[in-house]
Lab assay of single mutants.
Amino acid sequence: EESVKIVRLVKNKEPLGATIRRDEHSGAVVVARIMRGGAADRSGLVHVGDELREVNGIAVLHKRPDEISQILAQSQGSITLKIIPATQE
């Protein structure tokens, strides 16, 4: 059973501070990098390897990473992410 986590981040004009990529094996959209000091890093709630399912209620599974980045870039104020946390080894 996948544990889905709802994360709310507050982002002003600054970038979210995370990059995403598509996992070639599973097809999932995952967090590739977290930039120090960005909104994602400061929240402490988003981690490399987390699978991104939704951004502000928009399912991202069938979107290209550049489309998802665009949605994230255009979002201001509160951003709600639905993520499946990376499995902690």
Rank of each mutant, 00 (worst) to 15 (best):
K5G: 06
K5W: 00
K5I: 15
I6N: 04
V7D: 09
R8S: 09
L9C: 04
L9Y: 06
L9I: 15
V10N: 14
V10Q: 09
L16M: 09
L16Y: 03
A18M: 15
T19I: 13
I20A: 03
I20C: 07
R21K: 12
R21A: 15
R22M: 12
D23M: 08
D23K: 06
D23Q: 08
H25Y: 10
S26I: 04
G27A: 04
A28R: 15
A28W: 03
A28K: 15
A28G: 09
V29A: 09
V29G: 03
V29N: 10
V29F: 11
V30W: 07
V30M: 10
V31C: 03
A32P: 01
R33T: 13
R33E: 15
M35K: 15
M35S: 14
G37N: 09
G37F: 04
G38K: 04
G38P: 00
A39G: 04
A39C: 13
A39L: 14
A40P: 01
A40D: 01
D41N: 04
R42T: 08
R42S: 06
R42P: 00
S43N: 05
G44S: 05
G44H: 05
L45N: 09
V46P: 01
H47E: 06
H47Q: 09
V48H: 03
V48M: 05
V48Y: 02
G49D: 05
D50I: 00
L52M: 03
L52Y: 01
L52W: 03
R53N: 05
N56Q: 06
N56K: 02
G57N: 06
G57V: 00
I58G: 03
I58W: 06
I58L: 09
A59E: 14
A59Y: 04
V60T: 10
L61A: 15
L61R: 14
K63E: 05
P65N: 11
D66G: 10
D66L: 07
E67L: 05
E67D: 08
S69M: 14
Q70C: 09
Q70E: 14
S75N: 10
S75M: 13
S75V: 11
S75E: 12
Q76V: 12
Q76L: 10
Q76N: 13
G77T: 08
G77H: 10
S78I: 14
S78M: 13
I79V: 13
I79R: 03
I79Y: 08
I79K: 05
T80D: 10
T80C: 08
L81P: 04
I83W: 01
P85A: 06
P85S: 08
A86C: 14
T87A: 12
Q88R: 13
E89C: 08
